[in-house]
Design a protein around this nucleic acid. Structure first.
Lengths: 146, 146
DNA sequence: AATGAAAAGACTTACTA
DNA sequence: TAGTAAGTCTTTTCATT
């Protein structure tokens, strides 16, 4: 990826609603040139989309946790991610190297909701769980250094 | 937070570049009414900002890891997050309950970069680390159910 | 690939209910 | 707090280099 694209991506990561006019001014390109480049970046999948960043506390999801997950039957075909897709409290699912197979990041409203969620995860995927509760998050979703 | 705001936030989480015109059509409000509500949501901190979602592989950060961190001296005042702010590979820092004090999420280009990063983290914060390498991520950054 | 110009559409503001 | 209307700026497309 060349310098100009890198710059455009970085600007859009910092402000996803920046106008093409402003992107043009920042990069020294014309409006239509940046527009074209942004479209190519979207098509190539470099830019996957745009999202509002929301304060989880403000939308009534004050409790975050990491759940490490291990199938009861290690010999069975592992379709854990598919089995868990429908559970909306799961924000992310990472397959990891180490003692457990997956790390899940979840957000819920209360300890009771977490208890409930753990039961649903175990039932849906046939896994044992180990939960690490987040007490506070000093920072999150910081833009990558491109 | 009322239903209308909930709906607006949900739409903007799914598409951070949606126009106020379309938001109005989707919610049954006029353009200026949604616009006003969005501005209030931004001011109140419910919406913290907007960002392009980038494919980490495409920007040369193919290796993700979780690093659990524990200060060498548990009795010293704990300013780990501040000490680590300057390290740009750290995407998130969560204070957690459990054996370790923090979980860091990091992205780097290669195993060599990870090795280097671990040394910098230990030196900057005076901590021991335990690293879990991500092999693949079936999903990530899914929009919360509001 | 980038530019410039033109048409369509969106944003913003002020005013009214 | 919501709606309407006007002016301005942005997006999008297309012809040109």
């Amino acid at each position: 990826m060349e310098e100009l694209d890198r710059q455009i991506v970085q600007l859009l990561v910092a402000d996803g609603r920046m106008s093409y006019t402003d992107l043009g001014k920042a990069t020294g390109l014309s409006t239509s040139a940046v527009h074209q480049r942004v479209r190519r970046l979207e098509q190539r999948g470099v830019i996957r989309g745009y999202a509002a960043i929301v304060d989880p506390e403000a939308v009534n999801l004050p409790l975050t946790a990491f759940i490490s997950v291990k199938p009861f039957d290690p010999s069975a075909p592992d379709d854990t991610p598919e089995r868990l897709t429908g559970i909306e409290e799961i924000e992310a699912c990472h397959s990891v190297a180490g003692d457990e197979n997956y790390i899940l990041k979840v957000r819920v409203g209360s300890p009771g909701d977490l208890e409930d969620l753990l039961a649903r995860i175990r039932a849906a995927a046939g896994v044992s769980t180990r939960t690490t509760v987040v007490l506070s998050t000093p920072y999150e979703a910081r833009p990558p250094r491109l």
